[in-house]
Simulated assay, not measured.
Amino acid sequence: MEPDLVTDKRLQGVLDELVRREPLFHRPEFGTTRADFEAMTAPDFWETGASGRRYSRAHVLEVFEERYKKPPVEDWETSDFHCPELAADLYLLTYILVLDGRRTRRATIWQRASDGWKILYHQGTVVQEAEE
């Protein structure tokens, strides 16, 4: 029933670069300020959260700007990365994220631009809620 998700060998370098950037906005080495988050997102970026709600770029930027005023201590791990090319310089990265005990499937559409990687869209889908 599960798809056979194997990244094409020619995309291994892209996969390696994008794995280092996920989970989104949880990698302080790529920045923790609003300007950093603006630089990594396309102007029309939006996201569908694990709740199913849609969030604008402005909302996401506000949330993470506020969060990094006092950086949280998070317990997370990622696995099962897969990266097909959708079009020239456009990639879909999927993976599993376990964050504070909650397991979600993640999907991010990335674009390689002249000024670096840009996030066009992101979605999280809950697979297993954290145990209380």
Rank of each mutant, 00 (worst) to 15 (best):
D89M: 10
H26L: 14
L99W: 00
E47L: 08
Y95W: 09
Y95E: 05
Y55W: 13
R21L: 15
R34S: 06
Q12F: 10
H82A: 09
E2P: 09
H26Y: 11
L24T: 13
F64K: 00
G101V: 00
P43D: 15
E17T: 13
Q128D: 08
Q111G: 10
R102K: 00
L61F: 12
G124K: 01
D36N: 08
E132Q: 13
R27E: 08
V60P: 13
I119A: 11
V127P: 00
L11R: 01
G52T: 13
P23N: 11
R103Y: 01
R57Y: 06
T41S: 10
A50P: 10
D100T: 03
A39G: 07
T41N: 02
W76I: 02
D75V: 13
L93G: 05
E66V: 05
F45Q: 07
A35Q: 06
T7L: 02
R57W: 10
L97G: 03
V73M: 04
T78P: 04
G116Q: 06
I96R: 11
E77A: 11
L92Q: 13
L92K: 01
P3K: 03
F64D: 04
L97F: 00
L90P: 10
Q111P: 06
T48A: 13
P71N: 02
E65C: 04
P3D: 09
F25W: 07
H82Q: 07
S56N: 12
I119K: 01
D80H: 15
T32P: 01
P28S: 12
T108D: 13
R27T: 03
D100H: 02
D80A: 14
H82S: 06
E38G: 01
L5F: 15
D89K: 14
V6Q: 10
F45Y: 15
D89P: 05
G101K: 00
E62A: 13
P84D: 07
E77I: 12
R53Q: 08
K118R: 04
